[in-house]
Simulated scan of single mutants.
Amino acid sequence: MNIRYRIEQVGDLPPVLAAVLGIFVLALLGGVVWGLLWLPDHTKLRSPAARERAQRRKESQKRQKKLRSRRESLQRKAGRR
């Protein structure tokens, strides 16, 4: 049984039954999309300790970036002399 045969079978259904089947399929797709949209956010940090670590890591990365840019700037300045 290939897909074309199945589509022809649906086409042979009475209009009311085909409409009900179509509505059911649309509702099923809508339910799947709704369910996927309402899944909990797995990227959100739940524990306060994890949030604190993430904040410290972010601040550390910011400091490292500033230090790196300053070091590169000084190296460029020294290279011009």
Results as ranks from 00 to 15, higher is better:
residue 78 A to K: 15
residue 57 R to P: 01
residue 58 K to M: 12
residue 7 I to L: 12
residue 47 S to R: 08
residue 13 L to C: 01
residue 79 G to V: 07
residue 45 L to C: 06
residue 67 L to F: 05
residue 3 I to Q: 07
residue 23 I to A: 05
residue 45 L to R: 08
residue 54 A to W: 01
residue 57 R to Y: 03
residue 12 D to M: 03
residue 55 Q to F: 05
residue 43 T to A: 14
residue 29 L to I: 12
residue 22 G to A: 12
residue 78 A to W: 14
residue 22 G to R: 04
residue 51 R to G: 01
residue 56 R to V: 09
residue 66 K to S: 09
residue 80 R to C: 07
residue 39 L to S: 05
residue 42 H to P: 06
residue 14 P to G: 07
residue 19 A to C: 05
residue 47 S to W: 05
residue 34 W to E: 06
residue 51 R to I: 06
residue 10 V to Y: 04
residue 31 G to N: 09
residue 74 L to E: 14
residue 40 P to Q: 11
residue 27 A to D: 07
residue 36 L to R: 10
residue 10 V to P: 00
residue 36 L to K: 08
residue 57 R to H: 05
residue 63 R to F: 01
residue 33 V to A: 13
residue 9 Q to A: 13
residue 4 R to Y: 04
residue 19 A to K: 12
residue 16 V to F: 08
residue 26 L to C: 06
residue 34 W to C: 05
residue 63 R to E: 09
residue 30 G to I: 09
residue 6 R to C: 06
residue 1 M to L: 14
residue 11 G to Q: 05
residue 17 L to I: 11
residue 26 L to W: 00
residue 17 L to R: 11
residue 70 R to L: 04
residue 37 L to V: 07
residue 18 A to C: 05
residue 9 Q to E: 14
residue 50 A to G: 00
residue 32 V to M: 10
residue 3 I to E: 09
residue 26 L to E: 03
residue 72 E to A: 10
residue 23 I to P: 00
residue 26 L to N: 01
residue 56 R to W: 03
residue 17 L to Y: 04
residue 35 G to K: 10
residue 16 V to G: 06
residue 81 R to I: 11
residue 5 Y to L: 13
residue 13 L to G: 00
residue 5 Y to K: 13
residue 77 K to V: 14
residue 66 K to W: 08
residue 58 K to W: 09
residue 40 P to K: 13
residue 22 G to Y: 01
residue 61 Q to Y: 02
residue 53 R to Y: 02
residue 64 Q to K: 10
residue 11 G to V: 01
residue 1 M to T: 13
residue 64 Q to N: 12
residue 14 P to M: 05
residue 40 P to S: 13
residue 44 K to V: 11
residue 38 W to E: 14
residue 38 W to F: 10
residue 49 A to G: 10
residue 33 V to C: 04
residue 37 L to W: 03
residue 9 Q to L: 09
residue 45 L to I: 05
residue 52 E to V: 01
residue 62 K to G: 01
residue 32 V to S: 05
residue 18 A to F: 05
residue 21 L to E: 08
residue 42 H to S: 15
residue 13 L to Q: 06
residue 20 V to L: 10
residue 75 Q to W: 04
residue 44 K to M: 11
residue 33 V to E: 04
residue 2 N to V: 07
residue 19 A to R: 14
residue 47 S to K: 08
residue 71 R to W: 04
residue 10 V to C: 04
